[in-house]
Amino acid sequence: MVVSEDILKRKGARKASDIPEEVFVLLNQGRIESVNLTEWLAVNHISLLENILPSMGLEDKLEFIVSEIVKRNTESGMKAIRLIGELLDKVMVEESTNKKEDFTMKCSNHVSDSVRCWAAFMNKNRNNSLEDKLSYIQPFAAEHHFGVREIAWMSIREDLSQDIEKSVKLLSEWAKSDNENIRRFSIEAIRPRGVWTKHIEILKQEPYKAQSILNLLKSDPSKYVQDSVGNWLNDASKTQPEWVLNLCEDWEKASNTKATERIIKKAKRTIIKG
Rank of each mutant, 00 (worst) to 15 (best):
T74Q: 11
S155D: 08
L41T: 07
K268Q: 10
A120I: 06
V111I: 15
L171W: 04
K265E: 12
H144M: 14
E180G: 04
Y208H: 11
G230D: 05
L27F: 14
L53K: 10
I137D: 01
I202M: 06
A267K: 03
K268G: 01
V244E: 02
Q240V: 09
K253W: 09
G230M: 07
I84M: 02
N246Q: 15
L171P: 02
S255G: 06
Y136M: 04
R126V: 12
N51L: 05
D159R: 07
K238F: 12
N44P: 08
S112W: 05
S96A: 15
S222W: 13
V2N: 12
V25K: 12
W40H: 03
E5I: 13
T74M: 08
R14Q: 09
F24Y: 15
L233R: 01
R262Y: 12
S222M: 13
N179W: 02
D18K: 01
Y208P: 00
I46K: 04
K15P: 05
I271N: 08
L130K: 11
R183A: 00
I156H: 05
R82I: 14
K100Q: 15
G77R: 14
T270Y: 12
E201S: 14
S228I: 03
R14E: 11
E59W: 03
K166V: 09
G147Q: 11
E75G: 02
S177F: 00
R10P: 04
N181S: 05
P20S: 08
L87M: 14
H45Y: 04
P54K: 11
P241G: 10
K258V: 13
V43Q: 02
L216W: 06
Q205K: 09
E39K: 09
K71Y: 10
E242P: 07
G85M: 00
K100C: 12
N127T: 08
K11W: 06
M56H: 14
A13S: 14
C248W: 05
C248G: 11
D60R: 14
E21C: 05
F64R: 14
